[in-house]
Structures are given as structure tokens and as C-alpha cells.
Lab assay of single mutants.
Amino acid sequence: MSIQHFRVALIPFFAAFCLPVFAHPETLVKVKDAEDQLGARVGYIELDLNSGKILESFRPEERFPMMSTFKVLLCGAVLSRVDAGQEQLGRRIHYSQNDLVEYSPVTEKHLTDGMTVRELCSAAITMSDNTAANLLLTTIGGPKELTAFLHNMGDHVTRLDRWEPELNEAIPNDERDTTMPAAMATTLRKLLTGELLTLASRQQLIDWMEADKVAGPLLRSALPAGWFIADKSGAGERGSRGIIAALGPDGKPSRIVVIYTTGSQATMDERNRQIAEIGASLIKHW
């Protein structure tokens, strides 16, 4: 067993022997301040990774656009098919120029040779490549099948209805392509620590998230040296922004954090800054 596999296998073990965790309302004060600064709703939840206990939450059962955070769930569904012998990570998928959609920095470079399922998941999570996500959605049967996968996990809230990039439209009061912070946090925890996926697939999923290259201005910008984070960000229309993450000190994750916002007129930089400040408060009061 590799060191990384050992780390993920012992996530519940280490967490069980940690000192009790206590909620700190100071972080919620910052979440509410972010709402004021952005002029928009902000949803927040913080779960203990081992027990699933909610440590703090704000608007945990209000719907927010998922945006690209759905790509972690998508690759979880792909990995479940791999575990069941219905898919192979090494299978190569070929596609054409007509398949390319807006923001496809990886797939646009491989029109000639195609990409493997493993490479597509890596591109979808680490670079948020939209064509990679659409190609992977095709392998599982489309958005409705991802929703069905989530329902089978016990998540009857999260739903995907459309493809990239239309799913980022974020129309107010439109339930399409949305989740709730509580539902997303619980589902992410199941994917990373539950028995739904094999140990190898859980490790692969967290490795992809740990290698995320496009979430630097968010929670990662607030992390002290030595902290662990595996995350996936999302951005959408109407001032929408979000991030889902597993993080913790001492090089291992111990909490799940989900943050979503929508309806702001603020710039992307300002949305990023507010999420980073929430992260800084979380870490300060850990």
C-alpha cells in the first residue's frame, strides 16, 4: 500500500482519535458579512469528516447552483462504474471539434489522439474542462443518470439537468442544476469515506481534487503551510461562485467545507476574496 493510499485508508482512524471539535460562531459572522459585502445569498456548511456531524452552517438547506462543483460527483459516478466493471479508466475516447464547448483548455489539445477516461476526469476536476465533463456525462448516460446515481446514494436534493455550459445559467428560483450545502457536503463525505467506492477509487477521487489547479484564489489562499486540501470550485452566471473541499491540518483532511453564493453584482475577484476570507476565519478558529 502506498503512503497516499495509507493516508486515505486511515482518515477515519486518525479522526477518531482527534480531540473533540467545537464550532466557532466567528466564522458564521464572516459568512454573514460576506453576504453584506456581496449583496447576495451565501450558503455555508462545515462537517466533521469522521462523524458527519454538522459543526457550523448557514442557509444549509437553500438551493444554490452547483456550477462546476458537480464534476466531482460526476467522476465519482464514473469511478463507481469502474468498480462495477462497467468502465475502464484506460479506455480512450475520441471526439471532434464539434464536441468542444466553451472553456476546454485540455480537451482542445487532444482532438487528434483523444483522451482516456482517467485523463478526462483529471481534466474535468483539476482544470474544470467543460468538454471533458460533457464527454464523461455521455459515458454514464447524461445528466439524468448522474441525478439517479445521487438518488441511489441517498441524495434526493442534488440534481443535474443540463450539460456544460448551460448548467451554469443560475436563474433565480430555478431548481435545475442545483444542490443544497448540506446535501453536497453529505454526498461528498460519502464519496470520500464511505463504502460506495473502493479504496482505490476513493484515493483516485481525492487525488484529482488535491491536484486542483484553478481554485488557488479561494480556500487555498488562506491555508497555512502543512495543511491538506482537496477541492473543486465552480463559477456561473449572475454572480455565482462555489467551492467544495476536504481539508485539515497535519497533512490530512478532517472536515468537509461547502460554500456557495449566487445573485451578486460583485466582480469575480471580490467573490473570490470573500470566500478566501471565510476560509481564513475557519482556519483561525479551527
Results as ranks from 00 to 15, higher is better:
D161V: 02
D36G: 01
M184R: 08
G142I: 00
Q274K: 07
E108K: 10
Y103S: 12
Q204K: 14
P165V: 00
E145W: 13
I171R: 02
K32M: 07
A211F: 14
K213W: 07
T147W: 05
Q88R: 08
P253W: 04
L247N: 06
D83F: 12
K30D: 15
P172V: 04
A77I: 08
T69N: 04
V29N: 15
G85L: 03
D231V: 15
Q37L: 11
L74R: 02
G226D: 09
A34L: 04
L160F: 05
M67K: 06
G248N: 10
E195W: 00
M209F: 10
L89F: 01
A215L: 02
R241Q: 14
M180G: 14
R238G: 00
L219C: 14
T126E: 13
E175C: 02
L28W: 13
T107M: 07
D231S: 14
I256R: 12
P217M: 03
E166G: 06
N173D: 12
G90R: 02
A230H: 06
T261V: 01
M115V: 02
V214G: 15
I244Q: 07
G234I: 06
T158Y: 10
R162K: 00
L282H: 09
G279T: 15
Q37T: 10
R159A: 13
D36N: 12
E210T: 13
E145F: 13
I256M: 12
G216E: 15
H151Q: 07
V82P: 02
S51E: 04
I278F: 14
V31K: 10
N173C: 12
G90K: 05
V78M: 13
R241N: 11
E164Y: 00
R238T: 00
I256F: 12
K284Q: 03
N134I: 02
I256A: 09
D231R: 10
S122G: 09
G85C: 03
S57P: 03
E62K: 08
Q274W: 10
P253L: 09
G194Q: 05
T112W: 06
A245C: 11
L49S: 00
M209T: 11
T267D: 05
G142F: 01
G43I: 10
M66V: 10
R162G: 00
A132F: 12
T139I: 12
L191G: 13
G154E: 09
A245W: 04
A40S: 06
R63M: 07
A123I: 07
S128A: 15
I229V: 12
M268L: 11
V117R: 03
A132M: 02
L49T: 02
L55D: 11
P172L: 04
S80E: 04
E56I: 11
I283Q: 14
A200N: 06
W227M: 12
L205I: 06
L282N: 05
G114M: 13
E169W: 00
A170S: 04
E108G: 10
I171P: 00
L120C: 02
T107Y: 05
I275S: 10
T147M: 06
D269Y: 06
S57F: 07
R91H: 09
S264E: 03
V82N: 01
K252P: 04
I243K: 07
V101D: 15
I259N: 02
Y260R: 13
P143M: 13
W208H: 05
S240P: 09
A123H: 10
P172E: 03
Q88C: 01
L191P: 12
N50Y: 09
G154T: 06
L111Q: 03
A215S: 15
E102F: 00
L247W: 07
Q88S: 11
A276D: 14
G194H: 00
T186H: 08
E145V: 13
Q274I: 12
A245G: 10
A148P: 03
R220L: 12
L223T: 05
M268I: 05
L55M: 05
S51G: 06
I278A: 14
E237I: 00
G279C: 15
Q274A: 10
V157Y: 13
S80A: 13
N134E: 01
V258H: 06
T139S: 12
Y95P: 14
N152T: 09
M180V: 10
D177V: 07
Y44I: 09
E277R: 07
M209D: 07
L218K: 15
W286L: 07
G251R: 11
M127D: 12
A123S: 06
L192E: 15
R162Y: 01
L150I: 13
L191C: 11
E166K: 04
L74G: 01
L218T: 15
K109C: 03
I171Q: 01
M180C: 15
A215T: 01
E195S: 03
A230N: 09
L120P: 05
P65H: 02
P165T: 00
A215P: 15
A182H: 08
G154R: 06
E108D: 03
L199M: 12
Y95S: 12
R176K: 14
L167N: 00
N134W: 03
T139K: 08
G263N: 03
A148G: 08
T262V: 11
V78I: 10
E169P: 04
P249Y: 06
E62T: 13
E87G: 03
S96N: 10
D155Y: 11
S233A: 15
R118Y: 07
A183D: 15
R189K: 12
L223V: 05
V72F: 06
A200H: 05
P105K: 04
L167C: 00
L120T: 04
R159F: 07
L196A: 07
D269V: 10
H156D: 07
E145N: 12
S201F: 01
P25K: 06
A235G: 00
E56G: 10
E61Y: 04
G90V: 02
D161Q: 03
R91D: 07
G39T: 11
I54D: 11
G279H: 14
E61R: 01
Y44N: 00
M153R: 04
G216L: 13
N272T: 13
H285M: 04
E175P: 08
G43Q: 06
D129A: 03
T116D: 01
A215R: 15
H156C: 09
M67E: 11
G239V: 05
D212E: 15
A77Q: 12
E26Y: 07
A222L: 15
W208Y: 11
A211E: 06
M209Y: 05
E145D: 10
A211H: 05
R241S: 14
A124M: 06
